[in-house]
Each structure stands twice: as structure tokens, then as C-alpha cells.
């Protein structure tokens, strides 16, 4: 089948998609967006998290056909137009929250969604919001630091405006 949707604001089209293919597969293998990761492909790790019509989802659990005509935003769409890192991305780099980085794309999208809903989450809120995103390398401490940093910067930016 043919699937057309919007990815990071651009229209994309994938041909010869087999019905069993996931959104994750189509993103990674058919439309050249391998940033979303494939650590489990069964909804357990969050490494494949993308926005679907503004809501974070595990793209490995979404059938490709379901995204027909809808809007997808992936980790590749978090940076600014000019390629400048987004606030959450920069915070992850600055805090040392990236080791192997395989969990990072999913965590970035999930953190972005968290801070959009609540710019000043408590530590427990952060842990709850990110509890579907596994990381095997960091022990999560620097991820907590990154989210706190992103939160502080978000608030500072809000105050400036």
C-alpha cells in the first residue's frame, strides 16, 4: 500500500508498504528518518517515541497505515530550522545525559512533551513521565539533571518574554 503523512512538517510518501509494517519501520527504512530507535519493537522501551498529532506514542506499536494523512514529529524535528539544538536537546548534551545515546531520541520527545504540559515538574513527576523510557547506561541521574536543566531554562525563557 501507499502511505502519505507529514513528517517534521514535510509531506512524505512511502510506497509498497506491507500491512504489517510499523510507523517506526516506515520512518527508519522508507523515509530516511532513522533517528527514532528500535530497541524492543514491542512497546516496552520508549526508544521509538515520536509525536503523532502532537501526542507522544511508541511508533513501533503504530501500524503504518494508521498514520495516513496525519502529522508525525520525530527527534529529527526537535532542532530549530537553522539546525540549532532545541532546548531539551541542548540540556541533554550539557548535563551528560547521553552515553550510548540509544535511549536519547525517545527521552527527548517524552521530555519535550512533559515540559510542554508542565514546565516545572517535580522530581517524582519527571520519574513518572519518563518511566516508559528505558536507559541502560546512565542510571538516570544525569537524565534527571537534564530535565531539571531544561525545565529551569524553559522557565527562564518564559520569564524573559
Amino acid at each position: 500500500m501507499r502511505v502519505t503523512f507529514s513528517a517534521n512538517g514535510k509531506p512524505v510518501e512511502a510506497d509498497d508498504v506491507w500491512e504489517g509494517e510499523s510507523l517506526l519501520y516506515v520512518l527508519r527504512e522508507r523515509v530516511g528518518l532513522p533517528g527514532s530507535k528500535n530497541a524492543c519493537e514491542q512497546g516496552e522501551c520508549g526508544s521509538c517515541t515520536v509525536y503523532l498529532d502532537g501526542v507522544p506514542v511508541c511508533s513501533c506499536l503504530v501500524a503504518a497505515g494508521q498514520v495516513q494523512g496525519r502529522e508525525v514529529r520525530t527527534v529529527e524535528g526537535l532542532a530549530g530550522e537553522d539546525g540549532e539544538l532545541g532546548l531539551v536537546q541542548q540540556a541533554f548534551v550539557d548535563a551528560g545525559a547521553v552515553q550510548c545515546g540509544f535511549c536519547t531520541p525517545g527521552l527527548l520527545v517524552q521530555t519535550d512533551a512533559l515540559l510542554a504540559a508542565d514546565p516545572q515538574p517535580s522530581d517524582t513527576d519527571i520519574r513518572e513521565a519518563l518511566s516508559g523510557n528505558l536507559c541502560r547506561c546512565t542510571g538516570y541521574e544525569k537524565i534527571m539533571d537534564a530535565v531539571r536543566l531544561a525545565s529551569a531554562r524553559t522557565c527562564a525563557r518564559g520569564a524573559e518574554k
Binding site: 527527534v75 529529527e76 536537546q89 541533554f92 548534551v93 545515546g101 536519547t104
Partner: peptide
């Protein structure tokens, strides 16, 4: 900072 950090957060 890690030299590969930027690429990793950009996917």
C-alpha cells in the same frame, strides 16, 4: 562535552 553528543541528540 562529548564530541558525538550533538549528533546523538539530533537523531
Amino acid at each position: 562535552l562529548r564530541p558525538d553528543g550533538t549528533l546523538k541528540v539530533k537523531g
